[in-house]
Nucleic acid binder design. Structure first.
Lengths: 403, 403
DNA sequence: TTTAGTTAGTTTCGTAGCCAAACAAATGAC
DNA sequence: GTCATTTGTTTGGCTACGAAACTAACTAAA
């Protein structure tokens, strides 16, 4: 069906066209290279309609004929692929000690991936805007030099971002009520593309949903493993942000009422017992944000060496994590929960016990079909997801104008 | 936009028409009585289009002209209302000790509400099908006598219902893997309307979403307060069932690790510390299912009388419930959590402390705007929601055929 | 009483964009 | 060389939307 069920939103022909353009675009993305006939056969659209849609998409430089044809009985087909060259989507991630910028083309191919160290933990939002604008300008000019049109820019922020894109609270950055999108747009002086802001876990979930090995899953949860623990929720094929945009705050659900005190002042939060801080508190209590990665490497080394106290520590973290994931699985019944961030290198010592705890606590038979997996997208998942956010709006029909 | 984003689903004219018919229908539902001109002005549809859509809906006997007109400057308007008389939607709820059947018209007006005692707890699914079929037949024949066409029948079951409508597990009924929808359709012998099955909490959430005082909330959670505790989740305006249909199983998230043993064998489940059983275990440990309502009345009486041990008991339950709701609010950020079932009569002694616990544990400022409210729909919420499910499919464009 | 003004709903016409079917094109098989 | 097969385009028909003109029914004011 056509409707999106939120209030009176009538449809007309342009909607039909936009929908079908998006259908063809998505189909080619998933099945490239493919012919017009393939598209017609698989989508149910008429051949004539497909021809017209494809012509439109070629005009907009979203598709390209490869000229290549298979050869078998019958007229050879002209194959179609996404045209990677004319466009770029930019994603930026701010974090405690760095800013990452990623640009991808329509296919999701990474065009660049720049990381600048930046003292996010001690900088104001205004300073961050300056730094991000500088970085964004360089990325944009690089893209322009490559003759690419920038379709949009999205910023991933570790914190609560409301439905209007205002950063309400970003505890690790010390920000409150910052209109990042507005300020960044101003700093970029009429950039000619939309600038959006979203929560990092949400965007990482989007990256997994579009690019990850579980991209078929319409229901997935991505869990960030940083100092803060958060989740991005995809249900029925779309990010679900909740009423104000604050969904996925699993870091502060109570796991161990008698546990250690959390940064938020309460006791036994998931973040306090299974966040990265809970590990480093035992191994490197004075580590600064910029040393996190090194310290985790050290933990991995010691685990590999089989140090019993480290193994016990990680098992405990895994079990607590599993309890949290059980709550997630019971409440949301996703097809997969994906662990990201620093949970990735630590996964070999976490996942088994986390799974055991989780499956033991999920009511639905067979855990409701929910698997616990480890992200393969690396640390840049949120930045990649930020770029994916831009591609998503193309996918859902907001195509760049005709030539 | 038009797309529903799940896989290649192209659109054509019939989709446009269906969408716009649904838009008009929903508008009239919300704003009756109203004129064609009102509809055009508010929805953005062209006057001509509205006229055509309305004519179609009148033909299908979904709308009716009231003939009544206001009188002010200009030509008086012919007002439109939903036509309540030609159709009916049926909802049936099975539970431990009764079966309820509800029929509503298009407006949601209750046409009948029948309750039959039925030993669900000790009957097989097959026996339940016989009982439900008998009841359904009587409801259908009553509707037919009133010259109403039955649009559909939905059954609410307290248990895990998968995406295909199979009851996987219904602990309180002792059922496993029952194809209720299929069997009931067979028992009704080609009823001429769709028969669906869904989880009771899901359907109660739907009832709240359509009929409740918070019907504007696009994100809400309904919590059943029975022996089992479950939730129905509405996000972005639709029920979210998860990958296999098992979302909302909050009854078995761990609230008090050192708490009492739950029916499921684990300790400290929400259900075990804040379910109705947790209350009755202290007041009437040997109560049979059919006595639940009486026993709760007794608890209410004693609470009203101010018995200290009862007040303490309820405060404890409220606090545990609040902790569970904090997890829900952190994870989903709904606009409102609605307590239903036996929590309703007990609300005066539960809500304050539950709120206190909940707001103390939600990370988002101001609790993310999430309110804790009490259902006003009464015990029949699930049955009403089952009927609402039928109306929902009409709303989303599956209209009955033209005359 | 007439006339002007206002609002409601219909009619007419133009257009977008879908589908079906016929057709043209390009190849392999025999 | 002809036929079969498959691809993609062209043509025509149809649906359903929007714009604008028009009719209808009323109030207000001259």
């Amino acid at each position: 069906m056509i409707t999106s069920h939120n209030g009176p939103q009538p449809a007309d022909f342009t909607d039909v066209r936009a929908t079908n353009l998006a259908v063809v675009l998505r189909f080619v993305r998933e099945n490239a290279p493919c012919s017009r006939a393939d598209i017609a056969a698989s989508t149910g659209l008429n051949k004539a309609t497909v021809s017209s849609l494809v012509a439109d998409l070629i005009d907009r430089r979203l598709l390209r004929e490869t000229g290549l044809t298979e050869h078998r009985v019958g007229r050879p087909a002209t194959m179609l692929v996404l045209d990677g060259s004319p466009y770029a989507a930019i994603g930026i991630e701010v974090n405690v000690d760095y800013i990452t910028a990623v640009a991808v083309d329509l296919k999701g191919e990474e065009l660049l991936n720049w990381r600048r160290s930046f003292p996010g933990g001690t900088s104001s939002a205004a300073q961050a805007v300056v730094a991000m604008a500088a970085l964004a300008r360089r990325v944009v000019s690089r893209m322009t030099k490559e003759a690419r049109q920038v379709l949009g820019l999205t910023v991933a922020v570790p914190g609560l971002v409301d439905v209007n894109g205002i950063v309400r609270v970003a505890p690790n950055l010390g920000w409150r009520d910052a209109d990042l999108a507005g300020d960044l747009t101003k700093a970029l002086r009429d950039p000619g593309f939309p600038v959006l802001v979203d929560n990092d876990a949400n965007l990482a979930a989007l990256a997994e949903h579009r690019f990850g090995p579980h991209r078929n899953a319409a229901n997935l949860v991505y869990v960030t493993g940083e100092v803060g623990v958060g989740a991005g929720i995809v249900m029925d094929g779309r990010l679900r942000r909740g009423g104000q945009g604050f969904s996925g705050e699993i870091g502060h659900i109570e796991i161990a009422p008698a546990g250690p005190t959390c940064r938020c002042g309460r006791r036994g939060c998931l973040e306090a017992v299974a966040g990265i801080g809970a590990i480093l508190a035992h191994t490197a209590p004075d580590a600064s944000p910029s040393e996190l990665e090194l310290e985790i490497d050290e933990v991995v080394r010691r685990a590999r060496d089989g140090e019993p106290d480290i193994l016990a520590l990680l098992e405990g973290v895994g079990r607590h994590l599993g309890r949290g994931m059980a709550a997630v699985a019971n409440l949301l019944n996703p097809e997969v929960v994906i662990l990201g961030g620093y949970y990735v290198p630590l996964a070999p010592w976490l996942v088994a016990c986390a799974e055991e705890e989780m499956f033991g606590r999920v009511l639905a038979p067979g855990g409701g079909g929910c698997r616990l997996e480890v992200s393969t997208l690396g640390y840049g998942a949120a930045a990649l997801g930020a770029a994916a956010r831009v591609l998503d709006s193309v996918d859902s029909g907001r195509l760049p104008a005709q030539r």
